[in-house]
C-alpha cells in the first residue's frame, strides 16, 4: 500500500510542478474563464432572461449563473491539456516509464488523472477568488461543499482525457479534440444556458444537453456551490467516470487496447 501512495505522491508532484512552471498555461487557465465572465456574461446579461430554478432561490444575474459552468470549463480544458501531455509523453517516451512500472497500470493511470484533477481544483479556486473580487460571490459554505464535487467532476473529465489520449496516434491530431470534444461538450451543456431555455429553441438539443456528462458535472458543481446535493448529477458523473475509465484502461491495456493496432511505425 505504501508503494502505491509513494507513486501517487510523485505523480501528483510532477504534474503540479509542470503546471507551476508553465506560467502561460496557468495564465491562460485563468484568463479564459475571466473573459467569459466579464465580457461575455456582461453582454448576455440583457439578452437572456433567467427564471428561478433550483438551486437558486431568487433571481440571479447571468454572471452568477455561468460561474459553475466556467468552473467546469476550467476542468474540461485542464483535462484536455493533460490528455495532450499524455500524448506528448507517449511520443517523447516518458510515458514508457509509467507503463513499465511494476505497479498496476490502472493505479498509475488513476494517479495521473488524480494529479490533473488536483491542478484543476487549484485553478477553479483561484478563478472563484478572482470572481469574488468582481463581486460575484457564492455562499461561504459553498466553497467547502464545492471541493468534493470538483474532485468528482475532475476525475470524470480526466478519465475522458485519458480515454481520448489512448485513441490519438499523433500529437498533430489533437486539434480535432478541440473541435469534436471540448466545444460540443461545453456548448451542448447547461454551462451557458439552463436546459429549459435550450428546450424553447429545440427539444432535441435539450435532450442532447441532458445526455452530455458535462451538463451533469456542471450541475453537480452548481448545486454544491449552494450547499445542495444533486443525486442525479452525482450518479450520472459517477457512471460517466466508470465508463470513461474502463475505456481508458482497455485503451492502455497492451493485450486489448487500440495501442496494439496502431504502432507499426515503432519497429
Amino acid at each position: 500500500m505504501k508503494s502505491y501512495l509513494t507513486a501517487l505522491r510523485a505523480i501528483v508532484f510532477r504534474e503540479a510542478w509542470r503546471f507551476i512552471n508553465q506560467r502561460s498555461r496557468f495564465f491562460a487557465a485563468l484568463v479564459r474563464p475571466m473573459v467569459w465572465l466579464v465580457v461575455f456574461a456582461a453582454g448576455f446579461r440583457a439578452a437572456l432572461g433567467l427564471s428561478i430554478i433550483p438551486p437558486y432561490q431568487t433571481y440571479i444575474t447571468y454572471e452568477v449563473y455561468i460561474v459553475p459552468g466556467l468552473c467546469g470549463m476550467i476542468q474540461l480544458f485542464n483535462a484536455m491539456q493533460s490528455s495532450l501531455s499524455l500524448v506528448y509523453d507517449r511520443e517523447m517516451g516518458s510515458m514508457r516509464l509509467l507503463l513499465t512500472s511494476p505497479l498496476p497500470r490502472g493505479w498509475l493511470l488513476f494517479c495521473k488523472i488524480l494529479a490533473g484533477t488536483a491542478v484543476s481544483v487549484v485553478q477553479v479556486y483561484v478563478f472563484l477568488a478572482l470572481a469574488a473580487l468582481f463581486g460575484i460571490e457564492m455562499p461561504a459554505a459553498g466553497y467547502v461543499f464545492l471541493l468534493p464535487a470538483l474532485v468528482l467532476s475532475g476525475l470524470m473529465l480526466g478519465a475522458l482525457g485519458l480515454l481520448i489520449s489512448s485513441t490519438i496516434r499523433q500529437l498533430e491530431n489533437f486539434a480535432g479534440v478541440m473541435n469534436f470534444v471540448i466545444f460540443p461538450m461545453f456548448f451542448l451543456s447547461s454551462a451557458l444556458y439552463p436546459l429549459w431555455k435550450m428546450a424553447e429553441s429545440s427539444p432535441l438539443l435539450r435532450d442532447i444537453c441532458a445526455f452530455n456528462p458535462f451538463t451533469h458535472a456542471v450541475e453537480l458543481i452548481r448545486f454544491s456551490l449552494y450547499g445542495q446535493f444533486n443525486g442525479a448529477a452525482l450518479l450520472w458523473v459517477g457512471i460517466s467516470f466508470s465508463v470513461f475509465m474502463a475505456g481508458a484502461l482497455i485503451g492502455y491495456d497492451p493485450s486489448r487496447g487500440l495501442q496494439r493496432l496502431r504502432q507499426p511505425g515503432s519497429r
Binding site: 505504501k2 508503494s3 507513486a7 510523485a10 510532477r14 516509464l97 512500472s101 511494476p102 505497479l103 498509475l108
Partner: peptide, 11 residues
C-alpha cells in the same frame, strides 16, 4: 531518480 524510484514503489 526519485520519480523513477517512486514508480518502482521505493520510498
Amino acid at each position: 531518480l526519485q520519480y523513477f524510484a517512486a514508480l518502482q514503489g521505493l520510498s
